[in-house]
Design a protein around this nucleic acid. Sequence first.
DNA 1: CTGTTGAAATTTTTT
DNA 2: ATTTCAACAG
Length: 690
Amino acid sequence: MKAKKEVVEEILGQLNPQQRQAATHGDGPLLILAGAGTGKTNTLVHRVAWLVLQGVSPGRILLLTFTRRAAAEMLRRADALLAQIRRGNKKSGALTSQVWGGTFHAVATRLLRQYGKAIGLPADFVIHDRSDSEDFLQVIRTELKLAKTDRRFPQKGTCMEIYSRCVNARMPLVDVLATVFPWCAMWEKELARLFDTYIERKQQAGILDYDDLLLYWHALLEDAQAGPVLRNMFDYILVDEYQDTNRLQAEILYMLSPDGRGLTVVGDDAQAIYSFRAAEVRNIFEFPEHYPNATIITLEQNYRSTQPILEATNQVIALAQRRYVKNLWTERTEGPRPELVLCQDEQQQADEVIQRILERRESGLLLRQQAVLFRASHHSMLLETELNRRNIPYHKYGGLKFSETAHVKDLLAILRLAENPRDTVAGMRVLVLLPGIGPKTAKQLMELLQSAGGQWEAWRSWKPPAAAAGLWDKWLQLLEQLTASPKDASAQIHAARTFYQPLLEEKYDNPYARSRDLEQLELIASRYPDRRSFLAEMALDPPSSTQDLAGPPILDEDFLVLSTMHSAKGLEWEAVYVINATDGNIPSDMTTGSPELIDEELRLFYVALTRARRHLAVFCPLFHYYGPFGKTDEYGMSQLTRFLPRSVQRYFHVQSGGRAEPSTSEFGLALRPGESVSAKVRQNLSRLWH
DNA sequence: CTGTTGAAATTTTTT
DNA sequence: ATTTCAACAG
């Protein structure tokens, strides 16, 4: 057996002095400012390992991060390292206990299940995802007659955003309206009423939305009884991607560790990309103010990318209005220059991307070491078609989730109602599926159910309209069956699926594909011990891509990665292809207002570029379908993103897609963006006869 | 009250 | 393209 010192050296051996200092830091509050690719997650994970070697029980360490994908990656690496320690040090039986970790929301859920009772939460609370919450808000919105006003009241999605921002930024409604939603300011009183009712109803029904998970965690920490218990659970708390935490999350951390003992946060202000979720970069700068005894360690050596890539990305981030002073450097000097490929249209862009991917695979680079990144999830549609055509396997992250499709939501609603008869949103959703039952009847039925204390018996005596007569009896049988055996989620899905099948065929014109999805859902459900954990998981951590559905991932299967830029954060690949780098996509047309938002788009672009280890290529299609509604005969001309001005292009190898054309070609000069080609042609032609 | 039809509005990123 | 909302027929 190795001596402990040897094991420590083995674990810390690969860290540089700054990383090592961070990993072996003592108990005081610690802020690690780490540029892109400087090994911040690695450092964090090594810190966990070091702490464990010092005798800290893994179960008393909490690892928090912001996105599910980053959380999974971080926990995977921590587990791998702890496994390594276990091999080197057989004695440490304590290592069997697991590190706590996950997203803020996932950890909140675990804590609230355990301790929620202290603040009056029912043990069987259910979690509403974003669209459930919106539906709930919509019900109340209609009920309060806010939908029918002389001037248009904000839609449910907007209402939800406003509410969510108040909660997460801990900002009064008036201020949120004034700063972020000025066009809704006239509805302040109505919104306040809406939110009051929303909160009240949620509590009655035993429902928590995403924001509630944080809010109740916060409340739990404030509680005189539960607070100390929670504070004593963890000796060390490590937070990744701290620049993306919001006010509420920062407060939770402050309360978890009032004096900063054992608290480590890692972040990079140049990579803050979640302000739309009320994230505050400010949290990073306030950390040393909040904890005056905080140690600050800066990581500047980049281990990820080659010098040419680093030079180019440094130029990009330097365009920010607000400067981010960091000197990223690397010892990896060798490497090709990043490419900027100007393409005729999206089709050519897809061809160019795929050509490079296949070339690199030929020369030994696995598909899974290559990734295509884009601003919005629908940007990859054409590429996906092409990949399918050529039988290239891929895995897409971000974008519309499987569990957000209507038929999956329908089926899950059946189980949710069985789990919690007070879940009016789920109940209404299912009931209106039945012929002859509309919103009014559904609402009455739910009220009837509530007054009977959630006993399905209450519905036995109800006379269904003729259209629903046949199904009503089956429906009640199903509910009783589901209530009788809440354990086997897979069997539950099966029963619900049998009931739902005819309704699905009636409702959708592509029932076959949809019922295949539901078969997959049944398979997924079989991985969970019971209905409650299955439902919680589907709300909090749904399968991130349709390929996830084909059972547990086969490790030696090779697939290309497609991802939104947001979902790509914290990850890296040997080769990265950034597509649709046009003005309007990056920065998105939605945001071309305030300089702050433009800066955020720039940081997002920077995040995308810095994912690359060795090969980086940016693609810009010259023509694109005009507008998002794809009127196929209307083309528009695009301009290269403003984040790659001439001064920055010097750091790229500029190419025109397909055949070589001198890199002097100017794009978007003949036409201003948005001006359609057909209009230009008409105009030119009309000169001929006027 | 339900279910259909047509017009109008919207358009990203994630827990 | 898709979602939301109002108007109308049964």
